[in-house]
Computed example of a mutant assay.
Amino acid sequence: MGNTAGMPGLRGIDHIGITVPNVEQAVDFFVNIVGCEPFYELGPFEASELLSKTLDVHPEAVMKKLRFLRCKNGANLELFEYSSPDQNTQVPKNSDIGGHHLAFYVDDFDQALAYLIFNGIEVMGEPVVRTAGPSGGQTWVYFKAPWGLQLELVSFPKGKLYEQDYDQKLWHPAYPDQ
């Protein structure tokens, strides 16, 4: 087609799917620590050729359960729990192909960080405060879910410095209609 404008009708990211070792543990963490809201669940889906072809999983993989969560203003989470003979149980590092993290925006960084520490959540290093460059105005720190998934706490209540040079802004959870 040669169209360089992107997919027709694209509106944004609907959800982010993450495979976790235990759906109930993950739901508990995302609901009771992060503050997401649980919605519906599906499963189990037994091993099948359709599952293997549509999701590129081992032919004997079983999707034990999946659960949808809403995390305030932004993409929803779809949590999967699988059993599979070839399952890699290591959480990828940020530098691994397929490595990833979820960033949660908060209005008050210090209050949210204190909350995570109070709840025994592993915080990775010290907060990074950006004062220059395109991300100037941003404060962030990584933390981990109980099973090792890397997450980020981020805030930039007065915006980022890149905004001075661009007519448009990156999508922001505090201002979803921009």
Rank of each mutant, 00 (worst) to 15 (best):
96 D>Q: 09
97 I>L: 08
98 G>K: 00
98 G>C: 00
98 G>H: 01
98 G>R: 01
99 G>C: 09
100 H>F: 04
102 L>D: 05
103 A>F: 10
104 F>L: 12
105 Y>A: 05
107 D>M: 06
108 D>S: 04
109 F>Q: 04
109 F>P: 02
110 D>M: 01
111 Q>E: 14
111 Q>H: 13
111 Q>F: 13
112 A>F: 09
113 L>C: 05
114 A>S: 13
114 A>Y: 03
114 A>W: 02
114 A>I: 03
115 Y>G: 03
116 L>Y: 07
117 I>C: 00
118 F>E: 06
119 N>K: 15
119 N>P: 09
119 N>A: 12
120 G>A: 12
121 I>Y: 05
122 E>V: 07
122 E>G: 00
123 V>Q: 08
123 V>C: 08
124 M>N: 02
124 M>C: 03
125 G>F: 11
125 G>M: 10
126 E>V: 07
127 P>C: 06
127 P>E: 06
129 V>M: 00
130 R>W: 04
131 T>N: 07
131 T>L: 04
133 G>P: 08
133 G>D: 09
133 G>L: 05
134 P>F: 13
135 S>M: 11
135 S>L: 11
135 S>W: 08
136 G>K: 11
137 G>S: 14
137 G>V: 13
138 Q>H: 00
139 T>C: 12
140 W>G: 01
141 V>S: 00
143 F>G: 02
143 F>V: 10
143 F>P: 02
144 K>L: 14
145 A>V: 14
147 W>E: 04
149 L>E: 12
151 L>M: 06
151 L>F: 02
152 E>Y: 10
152 E>W: 08
153 L>H: 13
153 L>R: 12
154 V>R: 08
154 V>N: 12
155 S>A: 14
